[in-house]
Amino acid sequence: MHPLTITVYDRNVRHMLSDDNQSSSHHTPDGNSHAMFPTNIKYVFEDDDTSLAPTESENDDGIENMIIVNLEESGTLSGVELISDQFEMLSYKGVTSGNDPMVDDVELEVVSQFTDLSNLVHDLPLDELIRLYVIQNEQMQTISNSM
């Protein structure tokens, strides 16, 4: 199996309003989200390869999020699951290069926990407030539909 690049885009509207969280993610050019690249990967499991099981009993208390990527033998993406207390998945897609069906990149759109925006939006015009809350409502509907 060839290496995959996993990119997570946090679509929380908070990122449109402030740049105070730049240390753990990068502002995307469209200004609508932060791009994160998952690191500190502890386990890789493949059904056919038992040699990838953990070698020692490790303490898993540091695991915050799990991304499960399901690939077919041909390398096509068959599903992605996110297990997290901080994020909810909105959508995912596999990116291929050329006519090759093998997935090279996996992109996830997630939303981080909704927070109080009142201190960030007090100077915004009404039409901008409406736009932000419409986006949040669409995100909540997507999350609700996926349950």
Results as ranks from 00 to 15, higher is better:
Phe114Ala: 14
Met36Arg: 14
Ala53Glu: 05
Pro125Arg: 11
Thr76Ala: 07
Met102Ser: 11
Met89Tyr: 01
Asp100Asn: 15
Ile67Gly: 06
Asn59Ala: 05
Pro54Val: 00
Thr55Pro: 01
Tyr92His: 13
Glu46His: 10
Gly75Arg: 10
Ser112Asp: 11
Phe114Gly: 09
Ser84Gln: 08
Val80Ile: 04
Val106Arg: 11
Leu117Gly: 02
Pro38Thr: 06
Pro101Lys: 05
Glu81Ala: 12
Phe87Glu: 05
Ser84Pro: 01
Gly79Asn: 06
Asn119Ala: 04
Leu52Tyr: 03
Ser97Tyr: 09
Leu117Trp: 02
Val111Tyr: 06
Leu77Gly: 05
Val110Leu: 02
Met36Glu: 14
Glu88Asp: 15
Val69Phe: 02
Glu46Cys: 09
Gln113Asp: 12
Leu82Met: 05
Asn70Tyr: 08
Ala53Gln: 08
Thr115Trp: 02
Leu120Arg: 04
Ser74Cys: 04
Gly75His: 05
Ile63Phe: 03
Met66Trp: 06
Asp116Cys: 04
Ile41Asp: 10
Ser97Glu: 13
Ala35Trp: 09
Leu71Gly: 03
Phe87Thr: 06
Glu73Ile: 01
Asp116Lys: 09
Leu71Asn: 05
Asn99Val: 00
Phe37Glu: 09
Gln86Cys: 03
Ile68Val: 10
Ile67Tyr: 14
Asp105Ser: 09
Phe37Val: 00
Val106Met: 09
Met89Lys: 07
Met102Tyr: 05
Asn119Arg: 08
Ser91Gln: 12
Leu77Glu: 08
Val44Gln: 15
Gly79Trp: 01
Phe87His: 15
Ser84Lys: 06
Tyr43His: 14
Leu52Asp: 10
Gly79Thr: 01
Val111Gly: 07
Pro54Ser: 07
Asp49Gly: 03
Tyr92Asp: 07
Ser112Val: 02
Asp85Thr: 10
Glu64Asn: 10
Asp85Glu: 15
Leu117Thr: 00
Asp116Gln: 03
Pro38Tyr: 11
Phe87Ala: 05
Gly62Thr: 03
Asp116Glu: 10
Asp49Glu: 13
Ser78Met: 00
Pro125Asp: 14
Gln86Leu: 09
Glu56Arg: 09
Pro38Arg: 08
Glu72Gln: 15
Ser97Cys: 07
Leu90Ile: 05
Asp104His: 00
Val95Asn: 06
Val80Tyr: 06
Val111Pro: 05
Leu117Glu: 01
Phe45Pro: 04
Pro101Asn: 03
Leu124Pro: 11
Val80Cys: 08
Gln113Thr: 12
Asp61Met: 00
Val111Ile: 10
Val80Pro: 09
Gly62Asp: 12
Val111Trp: 07
Thr115His: 04
Val80Asn: 02
Val44Met: 15
Asp49Ala: 06
Val110Glu: 03
Ile83His: 14
Gly94Glu: 11
Val110Ser: 04
Asp47Gln: 13
Asn70Gly: 06
Ala35Met: 14
Asn99Pro: 02
Pro54His: 03
Gly94Phe: 05
Met36Asp: 12
Asp60Phe: 00
Ser112Trp: 03
Ser57Asp: 14
Met102Ala: 12
Lys42Cys: 12
Leu120Met: 08
